[in-house]
Every structure is written in structure tokens, then in C-alpha cells.
């Protein structure tokens, strides 16, 4: 009987090792550090509550019903030199209504950084290359079907200052080419952070919705209750929300 169980173990080892190889791929023996970037939708440093009434800096009340944006290419910098990082995926559709959608995990072989950057929006090439999947699946409601292209960021809600039916406002910001380009690169400085192996370092990035109305341009809800196409107004909203990000916290556990 002893013999039999030895065979059993032998086969099990064979089977597992055969499968494992395909799952893990090539193993990198260099030191790897893990950083998790988590976007936290917020209003004035307080976490966003869907349905809560807020006031923007132009004195207008508003509530938020939907808030989404595409984040891409998160990267770390040390004294403006980019660290060599590996992203788990190219795009993340950050959705205030889906808690599992707000984090990006990246790995790097470098251990020190003092800056973070990322892109808000979908690369031009991915707007013109046909049917996409995953976070770029047009079923996610971030693709204009009548004027091909992605909505880079979306903010929807209600305000007593909106002249639209049901007091709604809908800002769908997109445009990927030429004068209509609404892709924005965000760069944020951080304190100097030393990474440790075996620990994930968390960077909490707040996204302050108030900045949509007044980050750079003063855009009153009473003047514009919606933007639904690429163009000058969409670009102004993109300029505004490009200023909404700030580092709230960096935690090494």
C-alpha cells in the first residue's frame, strides 16, 4: 500500500508542475515592489456620497448620480526620471459606483519614488481600431455610437441650476484627435517614498468633483447643463478635471 501512495504523490507532483508552468510564465528573480494606486472620488476632501447634495465653488448645488473616467499608464517617478513599472492592465475604467474598479496595481524593480503620473483618457489609436473588449467594451456606456470615440470621463447628476428636464446635468467629455483632443496627463508630486519588498504600498489619489466646475475655467451648471460631443466645451471640462487629483495618503503596510 505504501508503494501506491508514493505513486500517487509522484503523479500529483507531475500534474501540478505541468499546469503551474503555464500559469506563472517566466519567473523574474529580481526584487519586485508592489504599489497600489486607488482613486477616491471626493468633494472637498470628503469621500463622495452618491445622492448627497453639495455646493460647487460657483455657488450652485448639485448631486452626483454617476462619475467615471478612464485612467491609463500609471507610472512612478523619482526626480522626474520614470521608474520602470509594469501595469496589470493598460486602462482602468474608474467608476464611483463600483468599488472594485478604483485601484491599479503596478510593480517595479526600483525602490524609491517621489512622484506619480497617469493619463486620463483613451489613446487615439484605441478610438479608431474597431471593437474593443474589457474596460473598453462599448457596453460599459463610455463609447459614442453615432460619432465613434470614447467618452474619456463622465459626470452626471442633478442641480436646481440645470435647465434640463428633471434638473439633470450630463457631462460626457471626449475627443481624441487634433484640436478636439481631451486626453490629459496628470503628474503629482509625493513625499519621497521608499518601497519595501513583501509589502504593498498604497497611494490614495483623491478626485475632487468640485474641480469639474472651476478647476481652470468657471463652468456654471446654469450655463451648460450638458456636453455630449467633442469640441471646445468638452476640452474646457477636461482642463478642469485634470486639476481634480491630489495625493490624499501614502500607506506602506
Amino acid at each position: 500500500m505504501k508503494k501506491v501512495s508514493l505513486y500517487g504523490i509522484f503523479f500529483c507532483v507531475l500534474i501540478f508542475s505541468a499546469c503551474q508552468k503555464e500559469l506563472t510564465g517566466n519567473v523574474n528573480t529580481a526584487r519586485q515592489y508592489t504599489v497600489r494606486i486607488t482613486f477616491q472620488p471626493a468633494v472637498n476632501s470628503q469621500a463622495l456620497a452618491i445622492g448627497e447634495t453639495y455646493q460647487n465653488d460657483l455657488g450652485e448645488d448639485y448631486t452626483v448620480t454617476a462619475f467615471r473616467f478612464y485612467a491609463a499608464y500609471p507610472s512612478l517617478k523619482n526626480n522626474n526620471a520614470a521608474l520602470n513599472v509594469t501595469n496589470e492592465k493598460k486602462y482602468r475604467l474608474v467608476d464611483a459606483g463600483i468599488s472594485s474598479s478604483v485601484s491599479f496595481t503596478i510593480t517595479t524593480a526600483d525602490s524609491v519614488f517621489n512622484g506619480l503620473s497617469f493619463q486620463v483618457g483613451v489613446d487615439s489609436i484605441d478610438n479608431v481600431s474597431g471593437a474593443q473588449s474589457g474596460d473598453l467594451d462599448p457596453g460599459k456606456g463610455m463609447f459614442w455610437t453615432w460619432n465613434s470615440g470614447y467618452v474619456m470621463a463622465k459626470l452626471e447628476g442633478t442641480s436646481s441650476f440645470s435647465s434640463m428636464p428633471a434638473n439633470e446635468f450630463t457631462y460626457h467629455v471626449g475627443g481624441f484627435s487634433g484640436v478636439n483632443n481631451s486626453i490629459r496627463i496628470i503628474a503629482l508630486s509625493t513625499q519621497q517614498v521608499k518601497l519595501n519588498t513583501g509589502h504593498t504600498t498604497d497611494i490614495i489619489v483623491q478626485a475632487d468633483i468640485n474641480k469639474w466646475f472651476s478647476g481652470v475655467h468657471a463652468l456654471k451648471i446654469s450655463d451648460n447643463a450638458f456636453v455630449h460631443s467633442p469640441g471646445a466645451l468638452a476640452k474646457q471640462y477636461a482642463d478642469n478635471y485634470a486639476t481634480m487629483f491630489s495625493i490624499a495618503e501614502i500607506v506602506s503596510e
Binding site: N127, S129, A131, T145, G149
Partner: peptide, 14 residues
């Protein structure tokens, strides 16, 4: 308005 044959069906569909 449609920049690629693959995404065209989305327009009439929606």
C-alpha cells in the same frame, strides 16, 4: 461619424 466598420452596428442597435 463612424470611423471603423466593426463599431458601426452599435449605432443602429442603440
Amino acid at each position: 461619424g463612424i470611423n471603423h466598420i466593426e463599431v458601426q452596428p452599435l449605432a443602429p442597435l442603440e
